[in-house]
């Protein structure tokens, strides 16, 4: 379980996270939604020890992230943020292989190689394994980073806008992959998403944030409702149920 306890983060005078407490139990897909500047990415950053909070703390399976060695956390939790611009010329396979670093410290075993190849296959990157990242499209590069995070084989996978540079087909494919990872490998997946429709139809739980606070937290049935969404986004978003799926109507 990931537990954030009274986490506050300020940048200058603006409060980005305002006394946030939340528990994310093991398993399933949790989506964090909310308008720009709500503090979603910051919350993810604090949970994954990338950002030090001004007050409060975060524990993972009972270990405080600010006091546990990075190498230990790297085997439990993987984090992928939005900005994946890199200057180095690395191949897709080189990058994915880094996912095994927390486990092998650079010495690849045969089992590691299998895991790397499997992750490359799962993300449809077979043909691109030896290509350099700077020769790929944004979406392909994004998939390479996600393959790396999957190869890390951590219980918790935190992804900030993993769908941002993917088209609809790849987004749906990616969400299917997360579903499989959650259901069959019992991984805990936490994603920050902009697209409410994806959250509404693929997440087991939705945490909605606004102005540095959590304003709604529950199953899609509880959060994806016109009154709740209006409170989050300040616009009336219609919610309709068609063929067992949630359809969102923007005003």
């Amino acid at each position: 379980m990931i537990e954030a306890i009274s986490v506050t983060k300020r940048y200058g005078s603006s409060v980005v996270l305002d006394d946030v407490s939340v528990k994310i139990p093991h398993g399933g897909i949790t989506a964090i939604i909310g308008p720009n500047g709500a503090g979603k990415s910051t919350l993810l950053g604090v949970m994954s020890r990338l950002i030090a909070p001004d007050a409060g703390h975060v524990t993972i399976d009972g270990m405080r992230v600010d006091q546990t060695p990075g190498a230990v956390l790297a085997r439990r939790l993987a984090i992928l943020r939005q900005d994946n611009h890199i200057m180095l010329r690395l191949t897709v396979r080189d990058l994915v292989a880094f996912g095994r670093y927390p486990h092998n410290h650079g010495r690849l075993s045969l089992a590691d190689r299998d895991i790397i190849e499997q992750a490359i296959r799962q993300l449809d990157l077979d043909a691109l394994g030896d290509r350099y990242l700077d020769e790929l499209s944004g979406g392909q590069r994004q998939r390479a980073f996600i393959a790396m995070v999957l190869a890390q084989e951590t219980d918790y996978i935190l992804l900030d806008e993993p769908l941002s540079s993917l088209d609809v087909q790849k987004s749906v494919q990616m969400l299917g992959l997360f579903r499989t990872a959650a259901d069959e490998l019992s991984r805990t997946i936490v994603i920050v998403v902009h697209d409410i429709a994806f959250a509404a139809n693929y997440a087991d739980r939705i945490i909605a944030m606004r102005d540095g606070r959590i304003v709604a937290d529950g199953s899609p049935d509880e959060v994806i409702r016109q009154d709740v969404l209006e409170e989050i986004y300040d616009v009336p978003i219609g919610v309709h149920h068609v063929d067992g799926r949630r359809l969102l109507a923007y005003p």
């Binding site: 020890r49 990338l50 190498a71 993987a78 890199i86 880094f98 927390p102 650079g106």
Partner: peptide, 17 residues
């Protein structure tokens, strides 16, 4: 390997421990 990782970026390096 560690130098390659920090060359990729701070977040990346911290993530792999």
């Amino acid at each position: 390997d560690r130098f390659t990782a920090i060359g990729i970026g701070e977040t990346f390096a911290v993530n792999v421990g």
